[in-house]
Design a protein around this nucleic acid. Structure first.
Length: 287
DNA sequence: TACGCGTGGGT
DNA sequence: TACCCAAGCGT
C-alpha cells in the first residue's frame, strides 16, 4: 500500500470546510456537543442548533444546571432526541466526576452517556490531539474502498477494519489527529456513498476499488429503515407536539396527531419510560 | 449481534 | 416518486 498521508493531508489543507467545532477556539465541550449532534445527523442541519446551544450553554456546568427537558426542547428537529437527554446526562457526569472539565482520557470519555467508541476517539483526537483510529461511517467507507478494494464496509465494524485503520494512522499524534479528520472529510465530500467524485479524489491513483474497476457491492443487503406507520414515526409526532408547546399539553392534542389509539398509547408510554416526556397531571404531559 | 431510535435533504 | 442516507449508541 503506497503512502496515502501526504496527498490526503494536502487535499484537506486546501478543501476542508470551515466548521465552528474545528476552529482553534473551539473548546473540548464544543467538540463533544458537535459530535453528539452529528451522530446520524447531517452537518447542515446541526449548524444552527449547535450555535444556539453553545451560546446558551457554553460549559458543561451551564447545561447541567438546567432541567433535561430544556435540552430536549433546544434539540429541536435534529432527530433521535434521546441524544439530547444523553448530552445533558453527560454534562451532569462531567460536573460530578471531572470537576466540570471534559476529560481527555479515552476511557473516561467512553464512560459518559451517549459516548461510544467512535465519539470517544473523535473527542480525544479532535479536541485533545491524541492518536486514535476514528472509525465513523465515512472513514470505514474510504478505507474499504482505497485499501480493501470494495465499495462498502461490512455491516458491523470488524476487527480487521480496526487493525487496518490503526496501521494507516500516522505515528505523530498531532498529525494523526489531522489525518483522522481529513479521512472523514474526504468521505463526506468526495468519497460519498452513492456517487463518489473520483475525479476530485487526491488518492484516486492509489485506490484499490478504482484499480479493480469499481466492482459492485456484493455483501448482504443493506436494509433501509422502515418508517411509515412505525413507532418511531408515532413517537416523533408526539415529541413534536410536546416540543413546540410552551408548557404541559392536554392528552387530546396528542390524540390529534396519531389515529391508532393503541399504538399511540404504547408510544407515549415508551416516551415516559425513556424520560423524554413526563406526566404533569391526570391528562397532561410535558418534556 | 441485530435492532430500534427522528428527521429531512439529495437523487 | 420512492428510496437512500447522514460524524452512532445502548440494549
Amino acid at each position: 500500500m503506497s503512502d496515502l498521508h501526504a496527498p490526503l493531508l494536502r487535499w484537506y489543507a486546501e478543501h476542508q470546510r470551515d466548521l465552528p467545532w474545528r476552529r482553534p477556539d473551539a473548546s473540548p465541550w464544543a467538540v463533544l456537543v458537535s459530535e453528539l449532534m452529528l451522530q446520524q445527523t447531517p452537518v447542515a442541519r446541526v449548524l444552527p442548533v449547535y450555535e444556539v446551544w453553545l451560546e446558551r450553554w457554553p460549559t458543561p456546568a451551564d447545561l447541567a444546571a438546567e432541567p433535561s427537558g430544556e435540552a430536549v426542547r433546544a434539540w429541536g428537529r435534529l432527530g433521535y432526541p434521546r441524544r439530547a437527554l444523553r448530552l445533558h446526562a453527560a454534562a451532569v457526569a462531567i460536573v460530578e466526576r471531572h470537576g466540570g472539565e471534559v476529560p481527555d482520557d479515552h476511557a473516561a470519555l467512553l464512560a459518559l452517556p451517549g459516548v461510544g467508541d467512535y465519539t470517544a476517539a473523535a473527542v480525544a483526537s479532535f479536541a485533545f490531539r491524541q492518536r486514535h483510529a476514528v472509525l465513523d461511517t465515512n472513514v470505514r467507507r474510504v478505507v474499504a474502498r482505497a485499501v480493501g478494494g470494495v465499495e462498502f464496509p461490512p455491516t458491523a465494524l470488524t476487527r480487521a477494519e480496526r487493525d487496518r485503520a490503526a496501521r494507516l494512522l500516522p505515528d505523530d499524534p498531532d498529525t494523526a489527529a489531522t489525518w483522522a479528520v481529513a479521512v472523514m472529510e474526504l468521505g463526506a465530500l468526495v468519497c460519498t456513498a452513492a456517487s463518489p467524485r473520483c475525479a476530485e479524489c487526491p488518492i484516486a491513483d492509489r485506490c484499490a476499488w478504482r484499480s479493480a474497476g469499481y466492482p459492485a457491492y456484493d455483501g448482504p443487503p443493506r436494509r433501509g429503515q422502515a418508517w411509515a406507520g412505525t413507532d418511531r414515526q408515532c413517537r416523533g409526532r408526539l415529541m413534536a407536539v410536546l416540543r413546540e408547546a410552551d408548557g404541559p399539553v392536554h392528552r387530546s392534542r396528542l390524540d390529534a396527531v396519531w389515529p391508532d389509539a393503541s399504538q399511540r398509547e404504547r408510544c407515549l408510554d415508551s416516551l415516559l419510560v425513556d424520560r423524554l416526556a413526563r406526566r404533569t397531571g391526570p391528562d397532561s404531559y410535558a418534556l
